[in-house]
């Protein structure tokens, strides 16, 4: 599964890790991350992310 990078702060969303602190389980593809999820580092919207 593809990793996605936050264009604001550079945080990388890794599907293998997910974002468990914010309710996204490990193994969740970026496409399946909820639309209202935000970057855990800088708070940018999901559409601020691009494939790595």
């Amino acid at each position: 599964m593809e990793k996605y990078v936050c264009q604001v702060c550079g945080y990388v969303y890794d599907p293998a890790v997910g974002d468990p602190d914010n309710g996204v389980a490990a193994g969740t593809a970026f496409a399946d991350v909820p639309a209202d999820w935000v970057c855990p580092v800088c708070g940018a919207d999901k559409d601020s992310f691009s494939p790595e």
């Binding site: 702060c9 800088c42 708070g43 940018a44």
Partner: peptide, 9 residues
């Protein structure tokens, strides 16, 4: 007023 990334998280 939170201003995330202006200029730190």
């Amino acid at each position: 007023l939170e201003t995330r990334m202006l200029h730190w998280p």
